[in-house]
Design a binder for these strands. Sequence first.
DNA 1: TTATATAATTTGTCAATACAAATTATATAT
DNA 2: ATATATAATTTGTATTGACAAATTATATAA
Lengths: 238, 238
Amino acid sequence: MSLYQQVAKKLRQRIEAGNYQPGEALPRQAELALEFNTSRVTIQKALDILFNDNLIIRKQGSGTYVSPTYSSALDIISSQYGGTTQLFAGKATVSTQVLHFEIRLPTDEESQKLHIESTIPVYDIYRLRKLDNNPYELTKSIMPLSVISNLTKEVAERSIFAFIQHDLGLEIGNAVRRISADKTKNDDIQYLDCETHDPILQVSQTVSLKDGRIFEYAQTRHRYDKGSIVVFNKVPMV
Amino acid sequence: MSLYQQVAKKLRQRIEAGNYQPGEALPRQAELALEFNTSRVTIQKALDILFNDNLIIRKQGSGTYVSPTYSSALDIISSQYGGTTQLFAGKATVSTQVLHFEIRLPTDEESQKLHIESTIPVYDIYRLRKLDNNPYELTKSIMPLSVISNLTKEVAERSIFAFIQHDLGLEIGNAVRRISADKTKNDDIQYLDCETHDPILQVSQTVSLKDGRIFEYAQTRHRYDKGSIVVFNKVPMV
DNA sequence: TTATATAATTTGTCAATACAAATTATATAT
DNA sequence: ATATATAATTTGTATTGACAAATTATATAA
């Protein structure tokens, strides 16, 4: 890990430990540079990370302060893509039922969303995920074989996310999600145990690798009483 | 505007204009530094911005590339906080009906969400927003008088966001939002013209200023057929 | 005392340079 | 021709130094 990342990590720990209290000023950059035996520019790069995570407020001419509203923003993590299995690791038991597993050619919409030629086959996977044996989400994933390969029904029953990272050695990148509400459909009643008029929280997402290739276009339906999505909106850098 | 911001702006324009095609490599940093008559570090700071906006992919040892999936990410903007009035400026006519306007003491939940003492009064504003005369959203906003002052019903009928920025001269910062689905309630039927069993897309948000003070805790309810929320999830910097 | 101007402090920006790390191109050996 | 080792290229990290911009503290004047 590079130096500025190490410094960011250390400072983050201090904030989380309460060494620097919310609203309080951090030591000035020159002092931090001295303490970490590095240059001020490196301290600034470290502060960039903490600022990006909303841990600090920067005021030119004044100082760097711990966000007055800081209170260990743990649930923010839920807005990061790590797949359902990762998200609930240690918190609940995730079980998966593969309702459909197929390799076929993409529809026009799918090839467009995935940015692939219509001649490239895709995985079409339909899964029901349960948390501690309670129906949680219903997901239809489309993944192009040009990016993801050697996927099996057995893998789909475990964690596709882990497979992509560890077995294929690919790095997950950014994701764009569209969140909406919808009426209950037949599958929601059958698999999610919804009542006829229960609302559904629907997420349509495209997830990319770090090299920019899209590896998943998925639609997920949540029971309205089971899930909410936390998002963090930052002000633009320009 | 600082130099690296100007460079970022220029490069963004080129990408948006298609001068650099998706998937294509940008000129190498040394070349850009030469062209803009600046140093490579400045070019890197400019690239930081474009990377943050998902316009480019960076590969150490290889080069900097336009995101292969780039296609003018305009709707991403909808995930930024600019208030409803700003969001639809030029696209639709926003009209506002103030259903309730009151100054009172906060509830425990409100003082906690706003990070204020329970002795500090708050505005309690309940508004119906319409787009081109069609019911769009129903919002209950709580704002502390310690941050926002001189707010009137007349202001609430126009744009509170503009008032905060221009009249109070405050800078809007980050926002945390929790998105969920809910069943229709009486007010939804009355004001949003919902049917009894229509789902509602609900957003609970706390919005901060750049100095970290929270100025709004609000609950917004959308007709399920009128709005969806686009969010962009980035991989952490560490 | 109060307002105003000045100085000091602190963060932000930028340059020039050097080396590290990863990738890509080239040369070499088999 | 193919695989391997080497060199060249390109981005990433880091230092030092300098000045700009914003805020805060101090000194001065009324």
